[in-house]
């Protein structure tokens, strides 16, 4: 196998709070191959966004490693990190706050080119900005408009153009469509998939929307309270979810069918427990219908139970570790 574009090894990110350490990302390990999309799903506050930002070094990892093309990057000083910034970019959730309101569209898209000093002359930069606007489907007439003069979909296109400006290999997509109308969501998702084909991009796609993640991802990882509880190919995950939490998530997808309204059963009870100084044992145990004493005392480890299908749950303790 080739070297993965991104590999995380026991990545941890804890935040200090007045009440103790908040385990935003706890012991997350995964590999992401080139030209693939890994979808990260989970409910609000489970550490999805923090994971994406920690990989990019926007948050400093508490411990663990992040490997980009096989090279450790989590502790690189800013100077050595700067050239690597060209290779990895981020698309944000909120197209309102992710664009500087004082800059025009062309200034926003040109900013990474200027910062990295890729192109020098103004005419070269202008041409590149024009090209990028073409790629993401923004008309020339928007070059001199300000973000607040555009609608959400177009702003998100600006955000994408900015992320593409340096020809990155890897892009963290932090809920890039959840702030958009459904019709616009489809446009943006298709644009992102086209770009992936054309430019050979690798995506880490963070979302809480299962329909979106099913559409775009090759693999899906499910997170719960900072931990990865299940990871598998998209098809396999939707067909045969193993972890009780994943099962509950999939059951919560509304089915568009008359008379189906009251058929949703086994809805999860209880609230997400606090991510601050979590108790030992499985973090999902307080809400899990199958929880045993073992679940409340021993933390389950992520384990490959079928080929390419990982799960962290004591229900599968007896299953044989799948080795290739």
């Amino acid at each position: 196998m080739s070297v993965p574009v991104i590999e995380c090894i026991e990545l941890k990110k804890y935040f200090d709070t007045p009440f103790g350490k908040l385990h935003a990302v706890d012991n997350v390990s995964f590999k992401l191959e080139a030209h693939k999309t890994l979808g990260i799903v989970g409910e609000s506050g489970c550490g999805k966004s923090t994971l994406g930002r920690t990989i990019l070094g926007l948050h400093k990892a508490t411990s663990g490693k992040v490997l980009f093309d096989g090279r450790e990057i989590q502790d690189l000083p800013a100077k050595q990190m700067k050239p690597l910034r060209k290779e990895m970019q981020i698309i944000f959730q909120d197209p309102y706050s992710s664009l500087n309101p004082r800059d025009t569209v062309s200034q926003i898209i040109a900013q990474p080119i200027r910062i990295q000093g890729i192109l020098k002359t103004p005419s070269e930069i202008d041409a590149r900005v024009q090209e990028l606007m073409d790629i993401v489907g923004l008309g020339k007439r928007f070059a001199n408009t300000y973000p607040h003069e555009m609608d959400g979909g177009r702003r998100q296109r600006v955000g994408i153009a900015r992320a593409l400006a340096m020809n990155p290999k890897f892009i963290v997509c932090d809920e890039p469509v959840s702030a958009l109308d459904v019709s616009i969501q489809a446009q943006i998702l298709n644009l992102m998939m086209d770009l992936q084909d054309q430019m050979g991009l690798t995506y880490l796609f963070i979302t809480h929307n299962l329909a979106v993640v099913k559409h775009i991802s090759d693999d899906i990882a499910v997170m719960y309270l900072g931990q990865m509880v299940e990871k598998s190919e998209t098809e396999a995950l939707f067909k045969d979810p193993l972890h009780p939490y994943t099962q509950a998530l999939l059951k919560a997808i509304p089915i568009p069918e008359i008379g189906h309204r009251n058929s949703i059963k086994n809805v999860l009870k209880g609230e997400v427990t606090s991510p601050i100084e979590p108790k030992p044992g499985c973090r999902f145990a307080p809400r899990c219908p199958y929880a045993t004493d073992a679940c409340r005392s021993v933390e389950p480890q992520l384990k490959e139970v079928k080929k390419g299908h990982f799960v962290a749950c004591h229900l599968f303790d007896d299953a044989k570790e799948c080795t290739e």
Partner: peptide, 8 residues
């Protein structure tokens, strides 16, 4: 954050 990610 975007500017940080660009290496500013």
């Amino acid at each position: 954050e975007s500017s940080v990610a660009q290496g500013a």
